[in-house]
Design a protein around this nucleic acid. Sequence first.
DNA 1: TATTATAAGTTGGTTAACCAAATACATTTT
DNA 2: AAAATGTATTTGGTTAACCAACTTATAATA
Lengths: 233, 233
Amino acid sequence: MELDALAKNENKKVQNLIIRGIRDIINHKNLEPGDKLPSERMLSEKFEVSRSNVREAIHKLEFYGLLKPKPQSGTFVANIGIVALNGMIDDILRLDEPDFKSLVETRILFELKTSKLAALRRTDEDLKQMKMALEAYKEKIENGEDAMQEDLLFHLAIAKASGNSTMNTFMLMITPEIITNFEKYHVCDKNLAIRGITEHEEIYNAILNQDSKLAKQKMKEHFRALYQYCYNI
Amino acid sequence: MELDALAKNENKKVQNLIIRGIRDIINHKNLEPGDKLPSERMLSEKFEVSRSNVREAIHKLEFYGLLKPKPQSGTFVANIGIVALNGMIDDILRLDEPDFKSLVETRILFELKTSKLAALRRTDEDLKQMKMALEAYKEKIENGEDAMQEDLLFHLAIAKASGNSTMNTFMLMITPEIITNFEKYHVCDKNLAIRGITEHEEIYNAILNQDSKLAKQKMKEHFRALYQYCYNI
DNA sequence: TATTATAAGTTGGTTAACCAAATACATTTT
DNA sequence: AAAATGTATTTGGTTAACCAACTTATAATA
């Protein structure tokens, strides 16, 4: 396990080294947005790493929208300007694993907003999905079983009903991390879970009745306990 | 260009097909969290695709925290429960490119929150970085040049000063898309830019004075024009 | 029988060879 | 001279072979 982590760290280190190198090339050769980067083979030779490593690094920068690989043609610098590009690469290099507190803070931000938006935009299909998730959650709790998954699915259903694809995606991205940390720190509590049924129903009803203010308010209450808990870690 | 897009679509289609297949395997074989997935070679044979395709699909599910590849051992189902896993895979399959409106809506949500948090948590180093970005922006505008990059760097500096690594990462992720769309729709306006100097200074001062309420208020005003613009598209 | 040692097979990761498309350049044609 | 054609090279993407670490099964030992 430790070796694995080390290997991953080493790998990341190499990748960051390549990213740094690419940034230097762009600056040194005064590559403008739209210009072509040296080929993957050239880069792998220059940095003395495998071509796969170079490709991974390029993929990462592509994910953040800084590079655009074109098949059988080359990899090109995105049209976002040299200054922003430098700043963003520096930020990307400085990125580390998100801390739990920051995750929860972000989640609550999303939850409040998506519940509000869902109340304004939810379709009948959205309501159906939310209702299903709600019932599944209820059944599990009433049987005394763990229902974290069903809980999260209800919240993801709200995110989907918000009609905001970006927030929906981000919620998906942070959910697994949330689950992992919740299990690690044993955040879940039976008392909370039972009260959760009522709270979920209140949120659902507010969204059903398109009362955006109430939906947000109920969501806020729903997260009050969690919020306080997390800021005492 | 069209062929390129088609190829990318085709590639994505294959990837989604594999993801669907993996989900079916997990369900059909009743794989519990922590269980091992069939090997990459087996999957590539079963789905009649290349091993690279399988690896890409696995990487995507790994990115969303659903699978955990272990070197020289196998790929394992994450500890998030079969129900949530199914729901999330369905969501991931349904993900499409974010629309501009959803991007802007999310960005504004972040900007208001990060400015507030930055006012509460900013360090001296954060202030220095923000000041630098602010000056660079000012200089460009006063010379009549385009300053979108410097504008964004100022906002990214705020995100960093918020002390929330998750929001910082997400801001980085949406920024290139924002830039692209702004250029496409020619959102930027000279008049807005000049007024932007004052607005940026007001935001900076509020954060400097640790007045979180004012910082959020000024940020809201800063985005009012953009907000209205985007909802008229 | 229980435990350790050992060997064979399986695994994700890595490397290198290969491919078809795109480009650059020389040649031919008009 | 300009345009069209053909050819060689370069490119990102793909495939297949290889590697070292990990599992499992078997054998040896107590």
